[in-house]
Amino acid sequence: MIGRFNWAGVVEFLPQLATGLYYTLLISVVGLLIGFILGAIFGLGRISKNKLVYFVSSFYIEVLRGTPVLVQAIWIFFALPLIIGYNFDSITAGIIVIALNSGAYIAEIVRGAVMSIEKGQMEAGRSLGLDHGKTMRYIIWPQAFKRMIPPLGNQFIISIKDTSLLSVILVPELIFQGRLIAANHFNAVEIYTTVALFYLVITLSLSFILRIVERRLDIQ
Protein backbone atom coordinates (compact mmCIF):
# COMPACT_ATOMS: atom_id res chain seq x y z
CA MET A 1 0.00 0.00 0.00
CA ILE A 2 2.50 2.52 1.26
CA GLY A 3 4.82 1.52 -1.51
CA ARG A 4 2.74 2.92 -4.31
CA PHE A 5 3.35 6.45 -3.10
CA ASN A 6 6.30 8.51 -4.23
CA TRP A 7 7.98 9.24 -0.87
CA ALA A 8 11.30 10.14 -2.41
CA GLY A 9 9.54 12.85 -4.41
CA VAL A 10 8.86 14.77 -1.19
CA VAL A 11 12.48 15.94 -1.19
CA GLU A 12 11.72 18.20 -4.08
CA PHE A 13 9.19 20.12 -1.99
CA LEU A 14 11.26 20.40 1.18
CA PRO A 15 12.40 23.99 0.48
CA GLN A 16 8.78 25.13 0.15
CA LEU A 17 7.80 23.24 3.31
CA ALA A 18 10.78 24.82 5.06
CA THR A 19 9.36 28.23 4.22
CA GLY A 20 6.10 27.13 5.83
CA LEU A 21 8.00 25.82 8.84
CA TYR A 22 9.72 29.19 9.16
CA TYR A 23 6.38 31.04 9.41
CA THR A 24 4.95 28.45 11.76
CA LEU A 25 7.93 28.91 14.07
CA LEU A 26 8.00 32.69 13.69
CA ILE A 27 4.35 33.06 14.64
CA SER A 28 4.63 30.50 17.45
CA VAL A 29 7.70 32.04 19.05
CA VAL A 30 6.71 35.70 18.77
CA GLY A 31 3.05 34.98 19.54
CA LEU A 32 3.84 32.90 22.61
CA LEU A 33 6.39 35.42 23.90
CA ILE A 34 3.78 38.17 23.76
CA GLY A 35 1.19 35.68 25.02
CA PHE A 36 3.32 34.98 28.07
CA ILE A 37 3.64 38.68 28.84
CA LEU A 38 -0.12 39.14 28.41
CA GLY A 39 -0.69 36.04 30.55
CA ALA A 40 1.53 37.36 33.32
CA ILE A 41 -0.20 40.76 33.31
CA PHE A 42 -3.77 39.49 33.18
CA GLY A 43 -3.08 36.49 35.40
CA LEU A 44 -1.84 38.82 38.13
CA GLY A 45 -4.72 41.15 37.27
CA ARG A 46 -7.14 38.41 38.09
CA ILE A 47 -5.70 38.12 41.59
CA SER A 48 -5.76 41.90 42.05
CA LYS A 49 -7.93 43.43 44.72
CA ASN A 50 -8.52 46.39 42.41
CA LYS A 51 -12.02 45.81 41.03
CA LEU A 52 -11.38 47.48 37.67
CA VAL A 53 -8.17 45.53 37.05
CA TYR A 54 -9.92 42.33 38.05
CA PHE A 55 -12.87 43.06 35.77
CA VAL A 56 -10.75 43.93 32.73
CA SER A 57 -8.61 40.81 33.22
CA SER A 58 -11.62 38.56 33.64
CA PHE A 59 -13.30 40.05 30.58
CA TYR A 60 -10.22 39.44 28.44
CA ILE A 61 -9.78 35.88 29.67
CA GLU A 62 -13.42 34.89 29.32
CA VAL A 63 -13.85 36.37 25.83
CA LEU A 64 -10.68 34.84 24.44
CA ARG A 65 -11.22 31.46 26.08
CA GLY A 66 -14.85 31.41 25.13
CA THR A 67 -14.46 31.85 21.38
CA PRO A 68 -12.74 29.50 18.88
CA VAL A 69 -9.26 30.40 17.63
CA LEU A 70 -10.52 30.05 14.10
CA VAL A 71 -13.24 32.62 14.71
CA GLN A 72 -10.72 34.95 16.38
CA ALA A 73 -8.38 34.68 13.39
CA ILE A 74 -11.12 35.38 10.87
CA TRP A 75 -12.50 38.23 12.96
CA ILE A 76 -9.14 39.94 13.42
CA PHE A 77 -8.13 39.54 9.78
CA PHE A 78 -11.43 40.26 8.04
CA ALA A 79 -13.65 42.14 10.49
CA LEU A 80 -11.32 44.25 12.64
CA PRO A 81 -9.85 46.16 9.66
CA LEU A 82 -13.35 47.32 8.76
CA ILE A 83 -13.78 48.73 12.25
CA ILE A 84 -10.41 50.41 12.68
CA GLY A 85 -9.75 51.18 9.01
CA TYR A 86 -6.34 49.52 9.01
CA ASN A 87 -5.34 46.28 7.30
CA PHE A 88 -2.91 43.88 8.93
CA ASP A 89 -0.80 41.65 6.81
CA SER A 90 -1.68 38.04 7.52
CA ILE A 91 1.47 37.33 9.51
CA THR A 92 0.90 40.23 11.91
CA ALA A 93 -2.70 39.15 12.27
CA GLY A 94 -1.53 35.59 12.95
CA ILE A 95 0.85 36.74 15.67
CA ILE A 96 -1.91 38.82 17.28
CA VAL A 97 -4.27 35.85 17.28
CA ILE A 98 -1.79 33.46 18.85
CA ALA A 99 -0.65 36.08 21.39
CA LEU A 100 -4.15 37.03 22.49
CA ASN A 101 -5.45 33.49 22.56
CA SER A 102 -2.51 31.89 24.39
CA GLY A 103 -2.38 34.91 26.71
CA ALA A 104 -5.85 34.12 28.03
CA TYR A 105 -4.95 30.52 28.86
CA ILE A 106 -1.53 31.46 30.22
CA ALA A 107 -3.23 34.04 32.47
CA GLU A 108 -5.12 31.23 34.14
CA ILE A 109 -1.92 29.20 34.45
CA VAL A 110 -0.17 32.17 36.07
CA ARG A 111 -3.07 32.80 38.42
CA GLY A 112 -3.21 29.16 39.47
CA ALA A 113 0.54 28.96 40.08
CA VAL A 114 0.73 32.19 42.06
CA MET A 115 -2.25 31.24 44.18
CA SER A 116 -0.73 27.84 44.91
CA ILE A 117 2.18 29.43 46.77
CA GLU A 118 1.57 29.18 50.50
CA LYS A 119 0.15 32.29 52.14
CA GLY A 120 3.00 32.23 54.63
CA GLN A 121 5.48 33.16 51.91
CA MET A 122 3.76 36.47 51.25
CA GLU A 123 3.45 37.07 54.99
CA ALA A 124 7.12 36.31 55.57
CA GLY A 125 8.12 38.76 52.85
CA ARG A 126 5.78 41.47 54.05
CA SER A 127 6.81 41.04 57.68
CA LEU A 128 10.41 41.73 56.65
CA GLY A 129 9.35 45.09 55.26
CA LEU A 130 9.32 44.15 51.58
CA ASP A 131 6.39 45.78 49.82
CA HIS A 132 3.86 43.79 47.86
CA GLY A 133 5.67 44.25 44.55
CA LYS A 134 9.07 43.18 45.84
CA THR A 135 7.61 40.20 47.65
CA MET A 136 5.94 39.16 44.41
CA ARG A 137 9.09 39.63 42.42
CA TYR A 138 11.66 38.01 44.66
CA ILE A 139 9.64 35.46 46.60
CA ILE A 140 6.33 34.51 45.01
CA TRP A 141 7.08 34.72 41.30
CA PRO A 142 10.24 32.54 41.22
CA GLN A 143 8.44 29.78 43.09
CA ALA A 144 5.27 30.15 41.03
CA PHE A 145 7.22 30.14 37.76
CA LYS A 146 8.55 26.69 38.49
CA ARG A 147 5.05 25.40 38.99
CA MET A 148 3.92 27.01 35.73
CA ILE A 149 6.30 25.08 33.51
CA PRO A 150 4.33 21.84 32.97
CA PRO A 151 1.02 23.60 32.12
CA LEU A 152 2.91 26.22 30.09
CA GLY A 153 4.48 23.46 28.03
CA ASN A 154 1.03 22.09 27.41
CA GLN A 155 -0.25 25.49 26.29
CA PHE A 156 2.77 26.10 24.05
CA ILE A 157 2.10 22.82 22.25
CA ILE A 158 -1.58 23.65 21.83
CA SER A 159 -0.78 27.10 20.45
CA ILE A 160 1.82 25.78 18.03
CA LYS A 161 -0.77 23.40 16.64
CA ASP A 162 -3.31 26.23 16.52
CA THR A 163 -1.08 28.14 14.11
CA SER A 164 -2.20 25.64 11.45
CA LEU A 165 -5.64 27.29 11.58
CA LEU A 166 -4.03 30.53 10.40
CA SER A 167 -3.87 29.11 6.89
CA VAL A 168 -7.45 30.35 6.47
CA ILE A 169 -6.22 33.92 6.82
CA LEU A 170 -3.52 33.19 4.27
CA VAL A 171 -0.54 32.92 6.60
CA PRO A 172 2.01 31.02 4.49
CA GLU A 173 2.74 28.51 7.22
CA LEU A 174 3.24 24.76 7.07
CA ILE A 175 -0.19 23.42 6.22
CA PHE A 176 -0.84 26.34 3.87
CA GLN A 177 2.25 25.36 1.88
CA GLY A 178 1.31 21.70 2.10
CA ARG A 179 -2.12 22.34 0.59
CA LEU A 180 -0.59 24.38 -2.21
CA ILE A 181 1.81 21.60 -3.10
CA ALA A 182 -0.75 18.80 -2.79
CA ALA A 183 -3.25 20.66 -4.96
CA ASN A 184 -0.75 21.08 -7.76
CA HIS A 185 1.04 17.75 -7.62
CA PHE A 186 -1.64 15.32 -6.42
CA ASN A 187 0.61 13.93 -3.68
CA ALA A 188 -1.68 14.48 -0.69
CA VAL A 189 -0.56 11.38 1.22
CA GLU A 190 3.13 12.15 1.00
CA ILE A 191 2.87 15.88 1.66
CA TYR A 192 0.29 15.84 4.42
CA THR A 193 2.15 13.02 6.18
CA THR A 194 5.35 15.04 5.97
CA VAL A 195 3.57 18.14 7.30
CA ALA A 196 2.20 16.15 10.24
CA LEU A 197 5.71 14.88 10.98
CA PHE A 198 7.02 18.46 10.93
CA TYR A 199 4.52 19.44 13.62
CA LEU A 200 5.40 16.39 15.63
CA VAL A 201 9.10 17.20 15.48
CA ILE A 202 8.44 20.77 16.70
CA THR A 203 6.27 19.70 19.63
CA LEU A 204 8.57 16.84 20.64
CA SER A 205 11.57 19.19 20.62
CA LEU A 206 9.66 21.61 22.80
CA SER A 207 8.73 18.89 25.30
CA PHE A 208 12.37 17.92 25.44
CA ILE A 209 13.56 21.49 26.04
CA LEU A 210 10.97 22.04 28.74
CA ARG A 211 12.02 18.90 30.54
CA ILE A 212 15.59 20.21 30.66
CA VAL A 213 14.46 23.62 31.94
CA GLU A 214 12.37 21.94 34.62
CA ARG A 215 15.27 19.83 35.75
CA ARG A 216 17.55 22.88 35.84
CA LEU A 217 15.13 24.76 38.06
CA ASP A 218 14.66 21.82 40.36
CA ILE A 219 17.54 22.71 42.61
CA GLN A 220 15.89 22.14 45.92
Binding site: G120, G129, P142
Partner: peptide
Protein backbone atom coordinates in the same frame (compact mmCIF):
# COMPACT_ATOMS: atom_id res chain seq x y z
CA UNK B 1 3.40 50.02 57.08
CA UNK B 2 6.41 48.69 55.19
CA UNK B 3 8.67 51.02 57.10
CA UNK B 4 7.17 50.02 60.43
CA UNK B 5 7.59 46.36 59.58
CA UNK B 6 11.32 46.81 59.03
CA UNK B 7 11.51 47.52 62.76
CA UNK B 8 9.32 44.59 63.76
CA UNK B 9 10.72 41.13 63.15
CA UNK B 10 8.40 38.17 63.01
CA UNK B 11 8.94 34.45 63.43
CA UNK B 12 6.18 32.10 62.30
CA UNK B 13 4.99 28.74 63.53
CA UNK B 14 5.63 27.22 60.08
CA UNK B 15 9.00 29.03 59.65
CA UNK B 16 7.99 30.30 56.18
CA UNK B 17 11.54 30.25 54.88
CA UNK B 18 11.90 30.88 51.16
CA UNK B 19 12.37 27.37 49.75
CA UNK B 20 13.95 28.53 46.49
Amino acid sequence: INEVRTEVGMVFQQFNLFPH
